[in-house]
Design a protein around this nucleic acid. Structure first.
Length: 270
DNA sequence: AGTGCGGCCTGTCCGC
DNA sequence: TGCGGACAGGCCGCAC
């Protein structure tokens, strides 16, 4: 499922194909996504040129001349470029046709994703306004986490997955980062020292950066779909219950935290 | 205000 | 072999 690294990789891959290009048509084949796609999206976007493509959390922001398109890939969404008129696949819900003979295609089997048009400042949009800091910036640091954790009564894993605290730490990378930081995911976020939060911040930055690096090499061709789980060969604990810990050999454990599967080594993580 | 949970949707897996 | 049911998963939005 697309987490922050996949979204970042998508932005980097798609950007050069769409920035500076002008839309000639938009075809909506399935308007029922997380929120309904605007009925008049095609009229709105026609003849608009794409100014920039950026990312905020797991949202893609396609800046056009008269507003922004907010795109979220949900659980199963992906974007790809293909020649105009090229045949569509199952679950290709939206197609943006550009003036240079390439189409941008939004595919999303589970339809947890969204495509919204907004003319306001996109960062003030209700879906983005309350998002926490970007994990790969200097604003994301241990002091900030430590201070915020003081008033919370959650496990540390639920805490770092809260998008009001820090964006883009999904279920997979939360488990991985906690393993790198040797912190038990069940531990109360209040009962973690500043020094351990330093390790956790480094773990989060490292695992996300590594995944973006891999995505950059694995997904450099944006004419094809994502390879599902392309980062999986690098996962140290996620999905590895009952398999040996790569550090100590003890069996990786699986527990539920806030309805989410969590994986950890009870020997290495305290 | 902080926290928990239902619901959206479909591919995959499991048991019969 | 085919079928039904459970499950996963991000994240909003409501209930407590």
């Amino acid at each position: 499922m697309p987490e922050l690294p996949e979204v970042e990789t998508t932005a980097r891959g798609i950007g050069p194909h769409v920035i500076g290009r002008t839309l000639v048509a938009v075809c909506v084949h399935q308007p029922i996504l997380r929120y309904p796609v605007a009925e008049d999206l095609s009229q709105i976007l026609a003849q608009q040129t794409v100014v920039s493509l950026s990312r905020r959390g797991k949202y893609l922001l396609m800046q056009c001349e008269r507003g922004h398109l907010l795109i979220h890939l949900g659980m199963s969404g992906c974007l790809r470029m293909q020649p105009t008129g090229h045949r569509l696949r199952k679950y290709d819900h939206l197609v943006w046709c550009f003036d240079h003979g390439e189409d941008l295609v939004f595919n999303d089997p589970r339809r947890f994703g969204l495509v919204l048009w907004t003319t306001e400042n996109p960062f003030q949009h209700r879906l983005l306004a309350h998002l926490g800091v970007e994990p790969l910036t200097d604003s994301f640091h241990a002091e900030m986490l430590y201070a915020k954790a003081k008033t919370r009564k959650q496990s540390v894993k639920q805490f770092i997955m809260d998008h009001k605290v820090v964006v883009g730490v999904g279920n997979i990378y939360a488990s991985e980062a906690l393993f790198m930081a040797a912190i038990d995911p069940r531990r109360s976020c209040q009962r973690i020292s500043l020094a351990r939060y330093e390790r956790l911040v480094m773990g989060i930055k490292q695992v996300l950066a590594a995944a973006i690096d891999q995505g950059g090499t694995t997904l450099k061709d944006f004419s094809s779909n994502h390879q599902p789980g392309y980062f999986q060969q690098s996962l140290q604990v996620y999905g590895r219950h009952d398999q040996p810990c790569v550090h100590c050999g003890n069996a990786i454990r699986q527990v539920h935290l806030g309805q989410r599967n969590s994986y950890f080594c009870a020997h290495c993580q305290r």
